[in-house]
């Protein structure tokens, strides 16, 4: 980890990114770079991307998430070490690729972020209302659940996606998720399927994965949580789905809501069998 950080710091000196990541803050590399001379910026960016491929900035957020996981915090001054992500308290290896799943203690199907927020509330005493206030990364702040999800996801690097369908509630979540995926409404009559239900579609030059099939579902699962080059922020699938509902011209879905867990169950099960590469980079 140390060598990764060092290389990143050296490579990113022009982008003022790496040091910020360690304090849970991110800068916007593209914006910062815009002031410089054009060719120099382009060259810097190439270098930036090469290093990224080797040492993803996601790893800096994994490190931050790891620290948060083990630190006693919140009104109850507790760590998350007793948090059960599905494989038993504190057992994180391979947990992310088996989420969403049914949790008997909560009586609900939960995706990774929903479960982490549940643990922050039950174990540490944080208020869900507060965590939901500004849940997405901005230029000045990366919320703690984002780093925590990145840490947990990193513990499934190289493992097969195996989102369970054993429990009746898990099968129900898939079916309801599928219905939500195909539900057209709003002023523009869009559903997820309008953009993600057919092969080979594009919005402008952006490829739209066909999430109703394995290959597309894999593309949609892979690389998240992801560091977005545009804007220089770490984001989870909670953010991605929120922004897609915005583009769908729907009202706004609740953060870590059942609707999103159901959609992520649909997507995850469709991606089952593929080896997850871990948190990554997105355009």
């Amino acid at each position: 980890m140390a060598s990764i950080k060092l290389r990143a710091v050296v490579a990113l000196s022009g982008f003022a990114l790496a040091c910020a990541a360690q304090t849970g803050q991110t800068a916007a590399p593209m914006k910062k770079a815009a002031g410089g001379a054009k060719s120099a910026v382009a060259a810097d960016f190439e270098k930036f991307r090469d290093i990224m491929a080797e040492a993803s900035p996601a790893e800096l957020f994994e490190a931050k998430g790891k620290e948060l996981w083990h630190t006693k915090r919140g009104p109850k001054n507790a760590s998350l070490e007793k948090c059960d992500m599905g494989l038993g308290p504190g057992k994180l290896k391979g947990a992310y690729v088996k989420l969403p799943r049914y949790f008997a203690d909560a009586g609900q199907v939960m995706d990774a972020e929903r479960r982490i927020v549940y643990c922050m509330v039950t174990l540490q005493g944080f208020k869900e209302k507060d965590l939901a206030k500004k849940p997405f990364s901005s230029a000045s702040k990366t919320p703690d659940p984002v780093s925590l999800v990145t840490y947990v996801a990193g513990q499934s690097r190289g493992m097969k996606i195996a989102v369970p369908q054993k429990h009746a509630k898990e099968r129900e979540a898939y079916k309801v998720g599928e219905e939500i995926f195909n539900y057209r409404a709003g002023p523009w009559d869009f559903s997820c399927a309008t953009c993600h239900g057919h092969d080979g579609l594009r919005i402008r030059t952006q490829d739209l994965p066909n999430i109703s099939k394995k290959e597309g579902a894999v593309a949609a699962f892979e690389g998240w949580p992801g560091y977005r080059m545009t804007g220089g922020r770490m984001h989870t699938l909670q953010w991605r789905l929120n922004d897609c509902f915005r583009q769908q011209r729907f009202p706004e879905p609740g953060y870590v809501s059942e609707t999103l867990s159901d959609l992520l169950t649909y997507m995850g099960v469709n991606a089952n069998g593929h080896v997850y590469k871990g948190p990554g980079i997105k355009r």
Binding site: A185, G186, P187, F250, P251, E252, G254, S257, T259
Partner: peptide, 18 residues
């Protein structure tokens, strides 16, 4: 599920779910 979990945001009111 959507009616329970969504909220109006700006011009995007809950009636858009109907």
């Amino acid at each position: 599920s959507m009616h329970r979990d969504f909220h109006a945001h700006g011009i995007a009111g809950m009636d858009r779910l109907d």
